[in-house]
């Protein structure tokens, strides 16, 4: 049962992502992305990361997608400017390259003796919290600076020209 859910969810995540590749309209693409992200959240949960599953839903599916949709909305206010292009004409080369990369990665990942499995045990939010504010405390603090920097940058870029 567990396995079925896992592989099914994986299939959804991958298929939804592939749909972005060919979706004609940005809104459709964004919706496919949401599906993929939600499926991923479920995968996280199945892999014993309940906290991350929740965060995935909140941050990605919630916040980030809203940003995307908002932007799409803003742009769509001006009709005629924003036709999405079909697949670019020279698509075969890049697609082939991506395929090679995939094969390489798969080859590499299946070459190593790391296939052993243990029973899935959930790593509780508490453990994550302890790690976050124990050894990773400095990174947390620094990440705050990163957010501040991004905020300043975004604020500057988004304001009207200084008179």
């Amino acid at each position: 049962m567990y396995e079925i859910i896992f592989y099914l969810t994986s299939a959804i995540a991958v298929l939804a992502a592939s749909a972005i590749l060919i979706a004609p309209h940005p809104v459709h693409a964004a919706l496919y992305l949401v599906i993929s992200l939600l499926a991923l959240a479920l995968l996280f949960f199945l892999l014993g990361a309940p906290l991350l599953a929740a965060l995935q839903v909140m941050i990605y599916a919630g916040a980030i997608m809203v940003l995307f949709l908002f932007l799409i909305m803003v742009m769509n206010l001006r009709p005629g400017q924003n036709q999405s292009a079909p697949l670019a004409s020279g698509w075969k080369g890049p697609a082939f390259l991506a395929l090679i990369l995939l094969l390489e990665l798969l080859w590499i990942l299946n070459r190593f003796q790391i296939t052993a499995t243990n029973n899935i045990t959930a790593i509780e939010p508490k453990a994550v919290g302890l790690a976050l504010f124990g050894p990773y405390l400095l990174v947390v603090e620094v990440a705050a600076v990163l957010l501040l920097a991004a905020l300043v940058a975004a604020l500057y870029l988004s304001r009207k020209e200084r008179s």
Binding site: P94, L97, A98, I100, L101, E104, L105, W107, I108
Partner: peptide
């Protein structure tokens, strides 16, 4: 990406 493919290709 081509660079990445090339560098990874070295390992294979």
């Amino acid at each position: 990406s081509a660079g990445a493919v090339f560098l990874l290709g070295y390992w294979l």
